[in-house]
Write a protein that binds this DNA or RNA. Structure first.
Length: 311
DNA sequence: CCCCAGGCTTTTC
DNA sequence: GAAAAGCATGGG
């Protein structure tokens, strides 16, 4: 198996990243000792973090998506981004207490994940806890994803591709519901969206267009049942590389109120207050990287303040 | 039986 | 238009 050592000048916390509730792990990736197995861009990849600045990466393929394995991983984990510079220069001066807390979380990264996988995964994330989200995605993957075995260190590891749009588009509603917490409405929405992708009504490649204004991108995603502002922003941030997208959920709403003294955050979250908060955030954070910064704040809030240890 | 969990949709004012 | 209520499910 092909091996590449990735060295980065910026701190990286792959374990934190993998455990941080992203679809990389939701996608039923296996862990064997320190080795993380997953399928990225249809390619089985094994990652082992050996220091704050070093990753060991294994793959059968020397190149992925037209990039060398090294460049692909570098891009996938956004290693070109110095997470210190994600926050405005004035941030440490204006919010010294938060900045101190953030120290351990500046190595958490957003990954450039597959748009379809991100879309379906986050559609499973409304009104349920992290554990249930993971369970749903894992079941989708196991029941509808193509099986793939990898041999590594003398063992056979069974992985699954994320289900294709075609497979989910043709799924039976009741059967699929068993993967969506028995929520038939959610199952229906997932089937509809998958059909949209298959039929080209939802053009993920077009949505990747960087020129598309965020508001327009969000509107287009929200045309689909089961996708509102929050899920749309998650798809943009995690699946379309739009680091300006700032998803606001219950946790984000909480820290905006407590840490940044936003009175809007004390109101109940409605489409109206969502957009108001979105505007406020862009005066606090760098608008172009608001979502990236928000993701770091999110994990810091959950672990340091809420003391949540569930991923 | 209560509340909450990385919200969305429909009804009502 | 915008706020309020309804929705749907499992777990603590």
């Amino acid at each position: 198996m092909y091996h590449e050592k990735i060295i980065t000048k910026n701190r990286i916390n792959v374990k934190g990243t993998l455990y941080s509730g992203q679809t990389f792990l939701w996608n039923n990736s296996n862990i064997l000792g320190d080795y993380h197995f997953s399928i990225i861009n249809s390619t089985p990849i094994i990652i082992n973090q050996i220091s704050e600045y070093e990753l060991d990466v294994y793959s059968d393929e020397k190149s992925i998506g037209g990039l060398s394995l090294y460049d692909f991983i570098h891009h996938y984990f956004t290693l070109e981004i110095n997470t210190y510079s994600v926050f405005p220069e004035s941030f440490s001066r204006l919010y010294p207490d938060i900045w101190r807390l953030l120290g351990n979380y500046l190595s958490v990264r957003i990954m450039r994940q597959d748009p379809f996988e991100t879309m379906i995964s986050f559609m499973c994330a409304q009104g349920v806890g992290m554990q249930l989200i993971r369970k749903q995605v894992a079941m989708l993957v196991q029941n509808y994803g193509e099986k793939r075995s990898v041999s590594f260190l003398g063992r056979e590891i069974i992985l699954h591709h994320f289900p294709s749009p075609e497979r989910l588009a043709g799924a039976d509603l009741i059967t699929l519901s068993s993967c969506t917490n028995n929520n038939r409405l959610r199952a229906r929405n997932i089937i509809q969206v998958s059909q949209g992708v298959v039929e080209g009504r939802i053009d993920l490649e077009y949505l990747c267009n960087r020129q598309l204004p965020l508001s327009e991108l969000r509107s287009m995603l929200c045309l689909n049942d089961g996708i509102g502002y929050k899920i749309a922003d998650c798809i943009a941030l995690f699946g379309l590389g739009r680091f300006d997208a700032f998803p606001i959920d219950t946790h984000v709403k909480q820290y905006l109120g407590k840490w940044f003294n936003s009175s809007t955050a004390l109101r109940s979250l409605s489409p109206r207050s969502y957009l108001a908060l979105d505007g406020e955030v862009r005066t606090i954070l760098n608008p172009d990287l608001a979502g990236y910064a928000g993701h770091i704040l999110f994990h810091c809030w959950r672990k340091e303040i809420k003391k949540l240890h569930s991923f």
